[in-house]
């Protein structure tokens, strides 16, 4: 391939990033940092799409457009999530996810 880098490297990089995001999602308490972890996860998926497009189907656009759409979705998701977070903050005066546990038994 023109870049001289095997496809697997991209995939490994993306999956490491993905699971780092998951780790963040599971451990962080602040809702905003959780949101950032989600952004990491989305980003890693994006890398995968583009790498596959480049290496396996270079004559097509699908991967790129998926990436594009994911970026748009991420933007929308971030906007809504932050609106929700601000509302939660107003309601509970905290954005600690462990304190927001009203939805139980």
């Amino acid at each position: 391939m023109n870049t001289g880098i095997p496809l697997e490297y991209f995939l490994i990089l993306a999956s490491v990033m993905f699971f780092v995001g998951i780790y963040g999602f599971l451990t962080r308490r602040n809702l905003i940092t959780i949101l950032m972890s989600v952004e990491l996860v989305l980003n890693s998926v994006n890398i995968n799409f583009l790498a596959f497009n480049k290496y396996l189907f270079p004559d097509q656009f699908q991967g790129q457009f998926f990436g594009l759409i994911i970026i748009a979705v991420a933007a929308a998701e971030a906007a809504v999530a932050i609106a929700i977070i601000i509302n939660i903050y107003r309601h509970f005066t905290t954005i600690n996810v462990e304190d927001v546990d009203q939805m139980k038994f």
Binding site: I32, M36, E39, I71, A72, A75, A78, I82, Y89, I95
Partner: peptide
């Protein structure tokens, strides 16, 4: 979008809530 938009949005919300 990401670096310019979302991260700025996140930083704003951080400033609002923390």
């Amino acid at each position: 979008v990401y670096a310019g938009g979302i991260v700025v949005l996140i930083i704003f919300s951080i400033l609002l809530t923390s």
